[in-house]
Design a protein around this nucleic acid. Structure first.
Lengths: 95, 95
DNA sequence: TTTATTTTGTTAATAATATTAACTAGTTTA
DNA sequence: TAAACTAGTTAATATTATTAACAAAATAAA
């Protein structure tokens, strides 16, 4: 009934990041910072965790001479998100 | 867009407890233990937090000579759950 | 032109949370 | 009457999240 929720996704900031990636395909670090209003350090760490888990792809390039970090979701990440949402629904739509 | 999720509800065990209360009206401590398979101590603490926040009502009586703890949701708790679910939906139903 | 400020992050330190392990208090069984 | 069980609580620990400090370069200001 109440399945264990993927702890990697059951975190406000990581969930926001994945949520953005699921809908937008490619997202910049700076954009995440703007939208979530989280501190850069916090975002950096959560990205690292999602990357280590294989949920996201991280590409570092340059844009106007400044470093640019681009994120995209992996198949594994998309699957994990789907599972998380399905599991979560049993919590928020109780019968 | 991504509103802050009520940290009191954005916790797997507390969410499960509230979820049960929302749908079942009155729930025993022991029943929560069975359904969630969480440790008693963990449940005890999460109940305390929900109670301190005014989200649940706690009634202690006896049943067959054994202590019995009955929980029910308060108006405040129900409202908080509703808000939490609405906020959460923006994370899991991205546009 | 060199010092201050800004951009784009990372890492180390700290704060907050969750979980477990140990304990309390009483009950039932052997 | 000792051992094991019920129903929890509290204290200690482990985990997680967040911030604060740092780095490395770019640009703006004096």
């Amino acid at each position: 009934m109440y399945k264990n929720l993927d702890p990697l996704l059951h975190s406000q900031l990581r969930l926001a990041i994945i949520s953005m990636l699921v809908s937008t395909e490619k997202v910049e670090f700076t954009h995440i910072k703007e939208v979530t209003e989280a501190a850069a350090g916090n975002i950096s760490i959560q990205i690292k965790k999602l990357h280590e888990a294989g949920y996201i792809k991280v590409e570092k390039t340059f844009k106007n001479n400044y470093p640019k970090t681009m994120l995209s979701i992996t198949h594994k990440g998309a699957k994990a998100f789907e599972t998380y949402v399905n599991d979560l629904k049993k919590y928020i739509n109780p019968k």
